[in-house]
Computed example of a mutant assay.
Amino acid sequence: MTETILAAGPTIRLAAFLGVLATMALWEVTAPRRQRDIPRVIRWTNNIALVVLDTVILRTMFPILAVGLAVMSEERGWGFFNNIDVPASVSIVVSMVMLDLAIYLQHVMFHAVPGLWRLHRMHHADLDFDATTGLRFHPVEILISMGIKLAVVAALGPPAVAVLLFEVILNATALFNHANINLSRPVDRVLRLFVVTPDMHRVHHSVDPRETNSNYGFNLPWWDRLLGTYVAQPAKGHEKMNIGIEQFHTRRDLWLDRMLIQPLRGPPSGHALDSHSTAKEQK
């Protein structure tokens, strides 16, 4: 079973990724939520080039990724679930929920620590909001995120199938909740009880620091509500809210070379503990 998961994992992830991306792109064309301001050719080519670069660097730097480590942990008895006797269904469900909580906490940390915010703000600096925004992460952030994920997998000892399912679902929901798609308001209200919706996550991409530092969930919406980081709607409404980071608001900032050096440019303003942003918000 574990050998099958290892062998089929990359194919399953790639097929799911391409299928969801194509579905979201078609949905964005037929029923967009917001008017597009930047030509797709500029944003899509650079965002997709970035994810290709991220993938190459990740595969080069890490000889083993999360699913492989889960298999190794099971073989060697590492981690919590490999040392207790519980039904497989329980360990799978609990592992997926705990991995999602770890991603939420990691996201909060990347907003709270100025050095990490320098890396993560590149994700926020996209001037439009669509499915490819969910792919836009700095390579150094990707490496740090994978290191954190591997540490969680080693400590938790989740079944390999739980890690594979979690990664497929997380990638799919990241594309979904960044998509520029128009869900009816009643559907959105119900759906966001179970999964992060585009309207919920779009608030997180506002230039308003109060909204930027809210709605950290990528998959499950419960952590924001439970831990006090939930903002239901943007102050200016979804059609009029400004997307991005104020200090990187030119089309030239959307190019791959500028994205890669962005952590070195300007002050790390706008992070969750930035007193200047808080004072500006309260005026």
Rank of each mutant, 00 (worst) to 15 (best):
I38W: 07
I38L: 12
P39A: 06
R40H: 09
I42Y: 13
R43Y: 03
R43I: 00
N46R: 13
N46Q: 08
N46H: 15
I48L: 15
V52N: 01
D54P: 01
V56M: 02
I57K: 14
I57L: 15
R59S: 09
M61T: 13
I64C: 05
I64H: 01
L65W: 10
L65N: 08
V67L: 07
V67A: 11
E74G: 15
E75G: 00
R76L: 10
G77C: 11
F81Y: 12
I84N: 08
I84D: 04
S89R: 14
V90S: 08
V90W: 13
S91M: 05
I92T: 06
I92F: 04
V93I: 14
V94N: 02
M96P: 03
M96I: 11
M96V: 07
M96A: 08
M98N: 06
D100F: 02
A102W: 10
A102C: 14
I103K: 07
I103H: 06
I103D: 10
L105C: 12
H107K: 10
V108W: 15
V108H: 09
F110A: 06
H111V: 03
H111K: 05
V113H: 03
G115C: 05
W117C: 03
R118S: 03
M122L: 10
H123F: 10
L127E: 08
D128F: 01
F129L: 15
F129V: 00
F129R: 02
T133L: 08
G134V: 12
G134M: 11
L135Q: 13
L135F: 12
R136W: 06
F137L: 11
H138I: 01
P139A: 09
P139R: 11
I144M: 13
S145L: 04
M146G: 02
M146Y: 09
G147A: 13
G147L: 10
I148M: 13
L150S: 04
A151Y: 01
V152Y: 01
V153A: 06
L156E: 02
G157N: 02
P158N: 02
